[in-house]
Design a protein around this nucleic acid. Structure first.
Lengths: 356, 356
DNA sequence: CTGAAAGCGCTTACAG
DNA sequence: CTGAAAGCGCTTACAG
């Protein structure tokens, strides 16, 4: 039943790799001994080990990891599943980087997969990527991108261990029946707003697209800070915007049109802050001289704005690492209670806030 | 030799998955028949197939893909290896996206791995990520990030099929002994410069850090366009910059200090163009009214500048797709001659060039 | 069409 | 310490 070296369908055959049996023959030992040397498990005599190692080197033998994985019943491969994103945003790219970094420190591997689905598709109809349809290839999955309840149900149904990046979960308020890692939208905005207040600002607007739950939470943090000081929260809601940047641009017009112009604006995220900045500049309104501005996320671009944007830093790599860490725990303890980690953010003072 | 359900080391055992044998028993057929239904290969009678399918559904059976892969001698998993990058740049993120997209259309999977190494490390000393140390897990690798000759030698030494994203290859001018995909730095800059000339510009500077070979090639394209029209190429080389953006910022100072100020600048990439734009604005010099500006790469941010940046678009997803396509061909035809694909770029006219 | 058997490349008790 | 054997979960000629 040996597979032929030359297939007859025109496709050249995969070259025969040296196997553990070849090495055993070369070193004149049993295959079990090769395996023992490879896994440096039980004791092998010094001489035998040397002979085996030499044979391995001479034959350029690299063990077939797939075979090993079957026996281990664990692949040490996890899937990073990015859902409903047109492309790999820098934000998620950093999370992936964190996942990979922690995974590789544990000799684990990361498979990158993408999924597009509608929140209205019944769970069982969601067309999961092939990795999730088989078993044995991946041990578990890290869910990134936008997560709706139906996807969660589907992943549960196939009994695939998973951890979700929770900030982009939509429509599952407070549900705790799965492992999740996120950062603190509410407190991030709370701190940013408190900072503005501490700098003497009283008229502070919020500009963010609250159709996104995470922006809504940032608004809640902003509102909380305003209420603490008996200040009036004001939310700017322009119409007909087509992106976060555009939302910011349109917000600027609204803000400048108001009878009592604010001295500062909390933006829903850095992109919105950038749009505000662009449009204010166009209108000849200087940041921070006339209007102070803070963002949220601390994208690469924030520090490259002129002046550099004061914003809320999110530790994206740490989110990835924590997701991976939590998934590993879940794999080792399938019955463990679900956990939820909310990582702190940090307000980064740069140059878009003026002291009044 | 059955593995115990409960391990005694505190780690809970992996739950036993249903196997092909369980299904065979449930459907009262042999395991071969289950396999045949799964692979919808040879003919199975309608009734048997129905019985098997029903058993599969009832037991929630998902075949173990690892086992299948051993027999196939092919994992249908490729590795996307990002070298010497601090994080996953948007540029490379798009390439990865292209790789994934084409791979998944072929039912292949993509492993994401990272490597940091020095160009001076001897090939055999490069500490490859674990995926590349074993065999059987991945069929081949796509090299992205900065590629030095020693990495190439090392990958060749382990006989791992690979395709390189060639624009970031350093120190291997014109060598064709491997499969590569890239885009056309030279012609991209050539076209951009020709466009400026067609708009009436004659005094056109080039600002780009030529310690990078790809920026050097862009300069060559710029120079070629200048020479075609007997114009004098001028390269701006500021000192002590710490990033592309900063290079652009420092270039602006140089440009403004020159006795004969250029009417247009070709930037080595979009980041440099952004730095130029920032600094020119600071000096009260309007783009494009006083100085026209073109970039290279067409990053997301280019269209968000004010005015939006005219630049050279690179089809990053297409690069990823082509890498994947070429790798698949290599896997099927190990003896095939090496090929090199240079994908075209496109000059995108936006609003940073003024007609003179 | 279908079952029984051999085999993929490994790991791991078992019995010296 | 070490070899021979059984086994992991599959696929695939082979022989009905």
């Amino acid at each position: 039943m040996r597979r032929p070296q030359k297939a007859h369908n025109g496709v050249e055959a995969v070259p025969k790799k040296t196997t553990i049996r070849d090495v055993a023959r070369a070193a004149s030992v049993g295959i079990g001994t090769i395996s023992r040397v490879l896994n440096s498990s039980s004791q092998v005599s010094r001489q035998t080990r040397a002979r085996v190692l030499e044979a391995i080197r001479r034959l350029g033998f690299r063990p077939n990891a797939q075979a090993r994985r079957i026996l281990k019943r664990r692949s040490e491969i996890v899937c990073f599943l990015l859902s409903n994103r047109d492309f790999l945003h820098p934000f998620h790219a950093h999370i992936l980087q964190g996942v990979e970094s922690y995974a590789s420190s544990l000799q684990h591997h990361v498979l990158f997969a993408v999924l597009h689905y509608s929140p209205r598709t019944p769970p069982e109809k969601i067309d999961l990527p092939p990795v999730l349809q088989e078993h044995g290839l991946i041990d578990g999955v890290i869910l990134a991108g936008t997560i709706y309840p139906n996807l969660l149900r589907r992943i549960e149904a196939i009994h695939m261990p998973f951890v979700a990046f929770s900030n982009n979960v939509v429509g599952l308020d407070g549900e705790q029946r799965y492992d999740q890692v996120g950062f603190d939208d509410f407190n991030g905005a709370l701190q940013a707003t408190r900072y503005l207040i501490a700098q003497g600002h009283r008229l502070i607007d919020f500009a963010g697209d609250m159709s996104y739950p995470w922006i809504q939470r940032r608004f809640d943090g902003y509102r909380q800070a305003m209420r603490e000081k008996k200040l009036k929260p004001v939310s700017i809601q322009p119409q007909n915007f087509d992106s976060f940047v555009n939302f910011g641009q349109k917000s600027a017009g609204r803000i400048l049109a108001r009878p009592s112009r604010p001295t500062a604006v909390v933006a829903g995220n850095d992109e919105t802050a950038y749009g505000l900045w662009l449009s204010l500049r166009r209108h000849g309104v200087k940041v921070p001289d006339e209007i102070s501005l803070v963002g949220f996320d601390d994208r690469e671009e924030a520090v490259l704005m002129d002046p550099p944007l004061s914003t809320v830093r999110v530790y994206k790599e740490e989110i990835g690492e924590t997701c991976m860490k939590m998934l590993i725990e879940r794999l080792h303890h399938p019955q463990m209670a679900f956990s939820q980690r909310i990582l702190p953010t940090e307000f980064v003072v740069r140059e878009t806030v003026r002291k009044l």
